[in-house]
Design a protein around this nucleic acid. Sequence first.
DNA 1: GATATTAGAGAGTCTTATAGTCTTTAATAG
DNA 2: CTATTAAAGACTATAAGACTCTCTAATATC
Lengths: 130, 130
Amino acid sequence: MKYSKATNYALHTILNLALSKSSKPIGVQTLAEKLNVSPTYLSKILTKLVKEGMVSSVSGANGGYSLTRGWESISFLDIIFAIEGKSSLFECGLDHGPQCQIQKVMLKSEEKMEEELRRQTLADLAKTSE
Amino acid sequence: MKYSKATNYALHTILNLALSKSSKPIGVQTLAEKLNVSPTYLSKILTKLVKEGMVSSVSGANGGYSLTRGWESISFLDIIFAIEGKSSLFECGLDHGPQCQIQKVMLKSEEKMEEELRRQTLADLAKTSE
DNA sequence: GATATTAGAGAGTCTTATAGTCTTTAATAG
DNA sequence: CTATTAAAGACTATAAGACTCTCTAATATC
């Protein structure tokens, strides 16, 4: 079990956007170079973030990506959910009784992690990284 | 990102062993039937648990698997680590400066989850499941 | 309005990990 | 010695991740 590379790219790209003081949008080309990844691939990832409303995009010359208003309160969990999906890490597909105790424990532990990821906002991250 | 099915099988099998009052070892055949999975496949999973010292096995007629002494204090995390491995869920492979802040946050959240999984012992589980 | 530039969408490929199966070997009880 | 059971190894199938390539849509600038 591992986070996908896409999640890593998403987190780093969003951080890059947060640290860029530029009011102009930044092109995927530029963003991709910093991570050493292909622009078309990164664009797919960014599109997901756009759909979740964290990032906005403009097509055309001088276009690119920028963070939306309120970006400071975006959490790690938001970004991770956007890329990995929101479903639980553990699913006991076995049908044995109504309540799988194992599932319950797994879910609870997962929630501890999510709690922490929800607490960490982009604002926090930008502060420690500038 | 998902836990593997193998982890699910491992957790359930260990629970089954814990709940079985029998002093005799239980064969993989029997264990596999309860989970509706093939015996040879389950045996591979069990072998990992044997190697980690959580489960003991005897070959030959009337052989099978049983929990080792001290099984009550085995934690969820022990079992998960035995199957999934111990490495971190997130690895920022990008080389940018000495300390990746993102990695730090991810690691911390992961540790919250592990903390919870370490707290949950087989004894707890057996109690609520009997 | 034509052109250059940039994001978005879709199909296709390559690689890796998971989830198994099948077969053979080793241990042990009776 | 034989039946039974775990362990090991090689192999296959499926699915997901990690891309690439190509085409389309939007938009700024001339």
